[in-house]
Design a binder for these strands. Sequence first.
RNA 1: GCCGGGAUGGCGGAAUUGGUAGACGCGCACGACUCAAAAUCGUGUAUCGCAAGAUGUGAGAGUUCGAGUCUCUCUCCCGGCACCA
Length: 1126
Amino acid sequence: MGGYDHKKIEKKWQKQWQKDALYKTLDTAKGKDNFHLLVEFPYPSGNLHVGHWYAFAVPDILARALRMQGKNVLYPIGFDAFGLPAENAAIKNKLNPLTWTLSNIEYMKKQIRSMGTSFDWSREVVTCDPAYYKWTQWLFLQFFKAGLVYRKETAVNWCPKDKTVLANEQVVDGKCERCEAEVVQKQMLQWNIKITDYADRLISDLEPLDWPKEIKESQKNWIGRSEGAEIDFPLNIDTNVKRFVMIHGKGEQASSRGVFWPWLKAELEKRGYIVEAPDLPNAAEPDDEEQADYVLKHCTLNEQTAIIGHSFGGIVALRLLERGAKVQRVTLVATPFSGKFLDGEKRPTVVAATRKGFNFEKIKKNCHGFVTLYDTNDYVVPISDGEAFAKHLGCLLIQKKSQKSHFTDLKEPNVLRASVPTITVFTTRADTLFGGTYLVLAPEHEKVSSLKHQVSNKDEVEKYIDAAKKKTELERLAEQKEKTGVELKGVKAINPATGKEIPVYVADYVLGHYGTGAIMAVPAHDERDYEFAKKYGIVIKETLEPLILVTKGGDAAKKGQPFIDRNSILTVVKHWSEDKYLAVRYLPTDVRGCVSGGIEQNEDVVGAGKREIREETGYMHAKFVRKLGGTIHSKYFSDNYQKNLLVHFTPLLFQLEDDALGGIDPHEASRHTVTWMTAKEMGAFINREDMRIAWQRANGNFFYDGDGIVINSGTFDGMTVHEAENAMGQTFGRKKVTYKLRDWIVSRQRYWGVPIPIIHCPKCGTVAVADKDLPVELPEVKDYLPEGSGKSPLAKAKKWVAVKCPQCKGRAERETDTLDTFVDSSWYFLRYTDPKNKKKFADAKKMGKWMPVDLYSGGAEHTTMHLLYSRFWHKALFDLGLVKDAEPYKRRMNRSIILGPDGQKMSKSHGNVVDPDEVVERLGADTVRMYLAFVGPYNEVSSFPWNPDGVVGVRRFLERVCRAQDMVGKAENTALVNLLHKTIKKVGEDINAMKFNTAISSLMIFLNALEKEKKIGKSQWERFLKLLAPFAPHMAEELWGLGEHKRSVHKEPWPIYDEALLKDESVTIAVQINGKMRGTVEVAAGTDKTALETAAREAVVARLEGKKISRTIVVPGRLVNFVVEE
RNA sequence: GCCGGGAUGGCGGAAUUGGUAGACGCGCACGACUCAAAAUCGUGUAUCGCAAGAUGUGAGAGUUCGAGUCUCUCUCCCGGCACCA
């Protein structure tokens, strides 16, 4: 085969390169700049597919070319070795995941070597190596110590049959992948990392990065920042509450009886309540029994009473309930209870004043409504455990912990909110507040359970919530269109803007984890709310009207000129029998849309509509159907009136009764054309915004997201949307930024991962493992099935779990969860810079040599997860002073994907998987590399089918290169000089732009020319070989070696082109007439304009005969265009 | 629905960034070599037309001497997100 024995050549040189350590990369190379070319390290699945080749062998071209061009290139590789597949394989085959993984790595290494890639294997990183994960643990602990890590109850996928937590990818159609049991949601404590703290920086730092726009956009989208406002809606469950009894604490002048108490009293009285605030006896050394007696005697306690007990006053309040005082509600503010106290153990300070425990059964029974607990954790000494107490009493905890001091906090409306309960919503459209006609809570919203005593249709609500919980993702998705919900009957909220009572619903179209888990619904201006309101018959109130700056049919409004108001109508007119509409085109202005016109004096809108239809179209009998929403306001400069107009259009829908014509105004008729159009045609025809809105409303779309003016909103009327959003947001709520991004849950209840280096101590809580005890190595366990309680299989290693607390040396237990593998891959590139370091995760100086990564090449599937996590990780390290850049990757590119020969994604089920080993065996690694580089541009996200014939084409090219060796002679072939220099330039530029396909194309062009010439000078040939070397490293080396060189071609410098030799002697000039190609003319390079024009004129002289040339455009070196009159 | 990307011969793709559309490769056709086939080499290959010529970069409009490239409208395809208030 053309004397090209790829097997021999490739084996020979791969061995030789390894022997010579050709690609060992030093941290510095004299006179060379460092370049870090990073590719995503593979998961050791055990077999290399075409995708791996595409991911590693193609960037290798760039790595090799950059080295020849004088860069010190780090092109490292490793393995992302932890993760589920190993564990599953282990369970299935009763193997150790480590054994499975290591043998896979061995095999894949061999395969990767067969590509002829120039990876520096001496820097290999394997994430399951304790020498690596020691540092994963160490870094995690730095975050832990910095307060970036916390534990939180989070819903996980739980298989009730296997009794195990499932990863999302193990849930198939809402069922367990292994046993097909229904997966349920279960709350479990999970380790989280506060990535949301970095949300803003993760967005703003994208700006200067040299990344493709689409990746930046996806990340922004994923983070999902929305600016809006939080607004409190008071609940009107208090319709029964007429009076408040305020029981103060133990003599705090500054709080209950000082500043705060009078304020709260005044606020409640403002709301129309009767307030009693008795001055209790022995306030300095209180006795709860005694004080309870006093309140019972002096105050009115009945079912219309609510109690607010502050501090020790809370204990008194509970004592009252125990004594049988039946009240509507109780609010406990900063009441000093603790979990231990509930167990009967007495605490010092205030609590000591109580003489005996409580009968909580009685308390619960006598509190007619519910108990609200407002807890501040920093009260004098931390004696209050609100969470435990709330749970015990089944009451609502308003606020667990305040960041501020106890006293300042009490001055804020928080307590008022706890006493007069509210629902807080998040909205980005505060301007529509007056149109908020109901509230919706997510089924998991805390108020739903805390309000259950107030709700008269409790059973119905509970049924709905249960159903919602059971709904799998799939069902929720399928039902997307149909919105469901239940009203909380007996509970009303008050719209703070209108002061009106509005209903409260529970519906699963509101998400519990976004915003506050509650929304104010504005059916008039939100599609989803509209749908829901229609279904449940809720009031729809419009508060916005579109305000448009019209650009068609006159200039945009002239600045500084006043607007003249005009009242007009816009009509959508239906055909009398067909499903068509009247389309009107106004002639001088090319306004296309519908019949419109002014309302005359003593005329109503319907009358005006009928008249305009008659005058403009001639149709006599139009029947009024309905109004199409509120007024549409258009601003523009009118050519007719030479004035700025502010037109208030009333949009109307008419239907013709018959085809009777007549009465058309002859003057009007000359100013527009009238046609009938289908709905689809109409959509494309209308070219003016106000008419489009009327048209859309006729088709049921009332939701306009452009600018508008506010109506029906009291003092805010007339403001623009933007103004109103600010004004209402500030008046009724507070500014708030919300993100779609959620904190990163890093714990996995799995065996095959990095053990989380935390120890749980009953006394000290969660404690970090000491640095000297790292790494916490994975223990051996008998089998890798989960333990059954939801804990990871690590929990089975009892000896391993039992450990001393590093702080108090008492008995403690290890955390048994392992880390998400995205943690491992968030810093692997740092380890490449210093892979063997035993003292640090990487030396700062060494990182300085190679960070940030110059180019990161990878798959589009990592755009939002890996790329975002590792950027966050790097920023957190940056803040801790552990790295010196805030961003890890200077430049990122997403590669395309290689499809099967049938154009479908390669998969076993399609039977279209191409085995690269087989193709390499048959055609050689150089062919495969080069083919993959040739299929299309590498730096764009696209997909290319593997074309078996195309591969053969590349193989043919290489064979021809082999044969061309015979054409090499001593003498330089002058005919090839110009092309060679052009090729050097083009190949160099294209490689650097990662357009390998066109680089290869120009190599082919050169070979074609060479074959025509049949001879080439030795130095010319060698320069060609250097250009070929990055693409076909083995063959280039072989042919280079034949030329008896001692040094590898890959160590050679990149050839240089001579600008002077790039120039052609003559150029072909295009000759056009009126921009159409009419011929070409060959002229010497550098011919001046006049000579060029003359030559061009001659070339098309026959065509120019009898025509007058009005203009000639001459572009030197390109074309001559004669503009003639037809 | 929203965000992003795209649409060029039979196929993968080029096009100096507004200046000869279809480079290069595949496929196909014909020819050479061969008893023959494969391989190889040569020639041709956007469409219609015998030709002169006309048409042609998803569709329609626009800007321009000139548009695959710029602007607007629309259609379709791919990717991501998806009841995000």
